[in-house]
Simulated assay, not measured.
Amino acid sequence: DQTSCWRTAEAEVWEPWLEKQSGYQGRELLWDRDRQQAVVLIGWLSQSEWDAIPAGSIKKTENRFDRVLQRCLGSGASKPLPLQRTGSLQPIQ
């Protein structure tokens, strides 16, 4: 099922990668049952620490995540669960 495959791929790929990054403050994994979509909130000490991560490192990790999903879901799609939206949020002071 999509939810268990997504959680497996998150735990196997993104979690260990994120934990090695400077400024990483943790994340929250949420699942919208009605839309069958995930929401991931990732905390960083600062925007500049996130921006300092090389784009190639992020892309490599994203590709590995997709391969784990492909195997789990038995899908040939290059993006089995495509990213819908990204953005940056700031806490209300």
Rank of each mutant, 00 (worst) to 15 (best):
L41S: 03
S57W: 02
W50R: 13
E28T: 15
K60R: 15
V39G: 05
I92D: 00
S4F: 01
S48N: 11
L29K: 00
S88M: 11
Q70V: 02
R33F: 12
Q93A: 08
L41K: 05
P54S: 11
D66T: 06
Q93V: 05
E28Y: 10
V39T: 13
L73F: 04
S75W: 02
W14E: 04
G26S: 10
V68C: 04
C5I: 07
V68P: 10
Q25T: 09
G23E: 02
R33G: 04
L89D: 00
E12D: 14
D51F: 07
E15A: 15
I53G: 08
S57V: 05
K79C: 00
R27W: 11
L81C: 07
Q25L: 13
L45A: 12
N63F: 08
Q84T: 09
E15W: 04
E49K: 05
P82N: 05
L73R: 05
Q47R: 14
I92A: 09
P16R: 14
T86L: 14
L69W: 04
K20G: 14
K59A: 11
L81K: 03
V13P: 08
Q90A: 11
F65K: 07
D1K: 08
Q93E: 08
Q84L: 15
G56Y: 03
V68G: 02
G56A: 12
E12P: 05
N63L: 15
T3V: 07
E62T: 13
G76I: 11
G87T: 03
V13G: 04
W6F: 15
S48C: 02
A38T: 00
D66F: 09
K79R: 07
I92G: 02
R27L: 12
T3K: 10
E15P: 01
I42Y: 08
T3L: 13
I42M: 08
D34L: 06
A77I: 03
W44T: 10
D1Q: 09
G87V: 02
G43C: 03
L81E: 03
Q93S: 08
A55T: 11
P91F: 01
G56S: 12
A55F: 01
T86S: 13
S22F: 00
L45E: 15
R64C: 07
Q84R: 14
D51A: 15
K59V: 14
N63I: 11
P16G: 14
E10I: 10
C5P: 08
K60I: 07
R85Q: 13
K20L: 13
R7G: 00
G23S: 03
Q21I: 02
G26H: 06
E12C: 08
L45Y: 00
R27D: 14
D32K: 00
I42R: 09
T3N: 08
E15D: 15
E10W: 12
G74M: 04
D66S: 12
D32F: 03
T8I: 02
R33A: 13
P54C: 06
A38K: 00
R64K: 14
V39N: 01
D32H: 07
S48Y: 01
I53M: 04
A9P: 11
L83T: 14
I58G: 07
S75T: 12
D1Y: 07
C5R: 02
Q47V: 12
